[in-house]
Simulated scan of single mutants.
Amino acid sequence: MGSSSQAIRYLVATTGAGNIDALNRVLADLCTRSNPKDGAALTLRLLVKKEACDLSGEAFACLMDHLYELITTFLDSNEVSENLGALRAID
């Protein structure tokens, strides 16, 4: 798909900026050394489930690609909080 910025622009155009912002907020809530905000993992699950119903197949695939890219970035990070956030998102 080219560069990641092109992918993000395409993703925002097809899914809406609100969906990306919500996804980024939930992942930020999961990225903490202490316990994450109450319900952050459930919120991520419900967000993905809602988008699966609301978006077209292609737009949902782009959203999931963005999620997987963020999780991979967090796993590769040297920050423990980001590593924990990625593991919580996977769980």
Rank of each mutant, 00 (worst) to 15 (best):
E79D: 09
A61G: 09
N83K: 10
T15P: 13
T72K: 10
P36S: 01
L63V: 04
D38N: 14
Y68Q: 07
I71V: 15
I20W: 01
L42R: 13
E58V: 14
A17D: 14
A52K: 05
I90S: 03
A22Q: 10
L70D: 01
D91A: 02
F60C: 00
R33D: 12
R33K: 12
T32G: 06
L11F: 07
L67K: 01
F74A: 05
L23W: 00
L30H: 04
S34W: 08
L44D: 00
E79L: 10
L75I: 15
T73L: 02
A40K: 03
S34R: 13
I8W: 05
D91W: 03
V12N: 02
G18K: 15
L11N: 03
E82Q: 12
H66P: 03
M64D: 01
N83E: 01
R25C: 06
T73A: 05
A7V: 15
S4E: 14
L70G: 02
I71D: 02
N24G: 06
A17C: 11
M64P: 03
Y10S: 15
T43H: 12
A13N: 08
G57T: 06
V12H: 04
S81L: 06
M64K: 03
R33W: 09
S77Q: 07
V12T: 14
E51F: 01
Y10L: 15
L84E: 03
S4K: 14
L75W: 14
S5R: 12
A28W: 04
S34K: 14
L46A: 13
E79H: 12
I71F: 05
L27F: 08
G16A: 06
N83W: 04
R33T: 14
L47F: 07
D76T: 13
D65N: 08
R25W: 05
S34V: 11
R9D: 11
R45P: 07
N35H: 11
L47V: 04
I20Q: 01
G57P: 06
V26D: 00
R25T: 05
L11Q: 03
V26K: 00
A17M: 09
A61P: 11
D29F: 11
L27D: 01
N24F: 10
I71A: 02
L75D: 09
V80H: 06
A7R: 12
Q6M: 14
N83Q: 11
Q6R: 15
S56D: 11
L46V: 08
A86W: 00
N19A: 15
L67F: 05
L42I: 11
G2C: 12
A61L: 07
E58H: 12
E58Y: 10
V26Y: 00
V48H: 00
V12K: 05
A22G: 08
T14S: 08
T15I: 10
C31T: 10
D65C: 05
A41T: 14
R9C: 09
L11D: 00
V12F: 03
Y68M: 08
R33V: 13
G39F: 08
A22E: 05
D38C: 13
G18W: 10
P36L: 01
V12G: 02
I71M: 08
A86I: 04
D29E: 15
N83V: 11
S5D: 12
V12I: 15
A86K: 02
L30D: 00
Y10F: 15
S3I: 08
G16Q: 05
E69D: 09
A22M: 06
Q6H: 14
E82M: 09
S4F: 15
A17S: 14
R33H: 07
N78Y: 10
D21K: 04
S34C: 08
F60S: 00
A13F: 09
E79P: 01
